[in-house]
Design a protein around this nucleic acid. Structure first.
Lengths: 218, 218
DNA sequence: CGAATCAGTTAATGATGACTAACATCACGA
DNA sequence: TCGTGATGTTAGTCATCATTAACTGATTCG
């Protein structure tokens, strides 16, 4: 359904405009949020003005939907490939981590939009995206379950999401470190965080039940 | 500047409406984004309709500004208190982590809005908020620098932000685990992630330079 | 050479939304 | 009791914005 690059590609410069628009829109959405960006803004960012977008997308919603669908498909496919392939669970986990880092570092805007704007995707494709996201997370859980068989799946899921948060934080603290330093640092941190899933007593076990920070405004 | 609860408090139920509005707005902003929420929506959420808000805030921007300023002040003050107080660096770090977890778990909406919507705050207070956020991060860096004196400050900063990402991920993976399980899990993961700042060779050092995930759409 | 289609353009149109104005309560304090 | 100020209400106003319409220039295929 919904033919991408309808039937034959438009003679000369194939879907380049389409990709250009998606790219510019991702950057803008990441910076100002879906509703903070106008069709005019997106058009302007690629050198055309306003309603030219409707030659490529059926609307702003559809643009966002395609963008997120694309991202979640890429992530999911790459994770599935890793987990289906050969190697120990340890190796798989390292490859999953490396893949997520590479993605977060090379496409920070997409990562940002991907976990912020799902709520603005219209319903048919919203479900599809959510499903792909869930499948992606489950690939991680599968590998983690092999490494920590005693651990409840819910804990593994929560831990996986926490690591996503860790790895996807790069867009926010961007630019401070060169990629060659940042990537191994994140990898080590993610690896260590996951090693801590199992509940050894005595690390920092106290204090988590304390009240909220600075209970003033109540 | 800009008197909160102007001069004397309004006769009966002091600033309760104000707080109520801030609370409802935080939830809405977290769910649909600043521009995705209308003044009517916010009013409706507290049982008044529309422009009643202007009796309490000078505008939508000002509402957001006050909300974020409040959050960053609370976070910063609590961290400063920890670091200024007594205890080893290890203890301080645990207390910082516990504080951040408590905040993220008890006020997920505020945490979400806090690191998404800064860009929509008008300029006078935008700088103030950014400054407080920076100071908060620097409290962490101070403690980390004591624990890892050989490590460049830039790395520590990046690591701190990564841990913020890890801890603040709770709003997204919300509900899966009870707080009594989630809090210690996050604490252990954060602690372990920070222990990995120092670059031991041989953990997962390969593979981070690989290409982006599923290099299709190019 | 056409005819068709792609890819743009500018000018409506119709909603929505932030903010203002003008008017109503109602609880005090003098 | 009267007035004053805090707090609401409803009905504009003015912008902004997504989307559509009507039209134009190319490029390619027959």
């Amino acid at each position: 359904m919904r033919d991408v690059t309808s039937s034959r590609t438009p003679t000369r410069n194939r879907g380049s405009r389409r990709a250009e628009i998606l790219d510019a829109a991702a950057t803008l959405f990441a910076a100002r949020g879906f509703h903070g960006v106008s069709i005019e803004d997106i058009g302007g960012a690629v050198g055309v003005s306003g309603p030219a977008l409707y030659r490529h997308f059926s609307g702003k919603d559809a643009l966002l939907a395609e963008m997120l669908l694309n991202v979640s498909q890429r992530l999911r496919a790459s994770a599935a490939e890793v987990v289906t392939g050969a190697g120990s669970a340890e190796q798989m986990l390292d490859t999953l981590i490396a893949g997520q880092i590479a993605f977060a570092l090379s496409e920070p805007a997409l990562i940002t939009v991907h976990d912020r704007e799902l709520g603005n995707v219209p319903e048919p494709e919203r479900r599809a995206i959510r499903r792909l996201q869930r499948l992606y997370a489950e690939e991680w859980v599968t590998v983690l379950a092999e490494l920590y068989p005693r651990c409840p799946a819910a804990d593994l899921r929560a831990a996986a999401h926490a690591v996503f948060g860790l790895l996807n934080s790069t867009p926010h603290s961007a630019g401070d470190l060169p990629r060659e330093t940042m990537a191994p640092l994140l990898h080590r941190m993610a690896r260590a965080a996951l090693s801590a899933i199992v509940g050894e007593r005595g690390v920092g076990e106290r204090g988590d039940t304390e009240r909220g920070v600075g209970e003033r405004g109540r």
